[in-house]
């Protein structure tokens, strides 16, 4: 039943339709959120193949767990990012258990994108720094500094407070900065 309070093109309306197993609404949500979810996952895991797999799994979870989503508690976009982040963490754990470096792909990503930094030593330092960033710091940096999210929204994804997000970003930036400075000495 259509809710009179929701416009037909909002995420909330489409999710209500998905909860009633409307596949066309699901398809619209996929079209709407695929790019941002894929970019977020890619920036966390740094590997295109994994990013595509996890993005697919994220949307399948959306369909499976649609009943668990309630409007007015969390925006759909935030909820999707929470699902994607949890899947990335699972992936990191799997990789760690198979002795494959979970951040090697992140390093590859940075390698391919930091050509603007000409100094190879600095590049290596940043590579090392990103390798050492804990997942929560990396997520906070990606959401707020790269994707331009507000700290309030990032706090919901990370299940923490705004102060917590600020602390995570601060620690991450300090780590990166400290390693660059050490490299310059």
């Amino acid at each position: 039943m259509d809710s009179p309070t929701l416009k037909a093109d909002t995420d909330e309306y489409l999710m209500q339709q998905v909860q009633q197993r409307d596949e066309s609404a699901f398809s619209l949500l996929v079209q709407r959120h695929t790019q941002s979810i894929h970019a977020f996952i890619y920036r966390l895991c740094g590997n295109q193949s994994d990013a595509e797999d996890i993005a697919q799994e994220t949307f399948l979870r959306l369909w499976q767990r649609a009943a668990q989503w309630t409007p007015n508690t969390v925006q759909l976009s935030t909820w999707l990012h929470q699902i994607a982040r949890n899947l990335c963490i699972d992936q990191f754990r799997r990789e760690r258990s198979t002795k494959r470096s979970s951040v090697q792909e992140t390093v590859d990503l940075v390698d391919s994108t930091i050509d603007s930094i000409e100094d190879a030593a600095q590049r290596r330092a940043i590579r090392d720094a990103i390798r050492t960033l804990p997942e929560r710091q990396r997520t906070a940096i990606v959401l707020c500094q790269v994707q331009g999210w507000t700290q309030q929204d990032a706090a919901k994804v990370l299940d923490t407070t705004v102060d917590g997000v600020q602390a995570l970003i601060g620690r991450a930036r300090r780590t990166l900065r400290g390693l660059l400075m050490k490299n310059n000495e």
Binding site: A39, Q56, W63, T113, R177
Partner: peptide, 30 residues
């Protein structure tokens, strides 16, 4: 100076490769 370099790195990290036909792949798997 280091902070400026960090900013550069982070803005460069915005580049994400194009996910070719990802929406179709999602719907096919669905």
């Amino acid at each position: 100076n280091a902070e400026l370099i960090v900013d550069n790195v982070l803005s460069d990290a915005m580049v994400v490769p194009n996910a070719d036909r990802l929406e179709q792949k999602i719907m096919a798997r669905f």
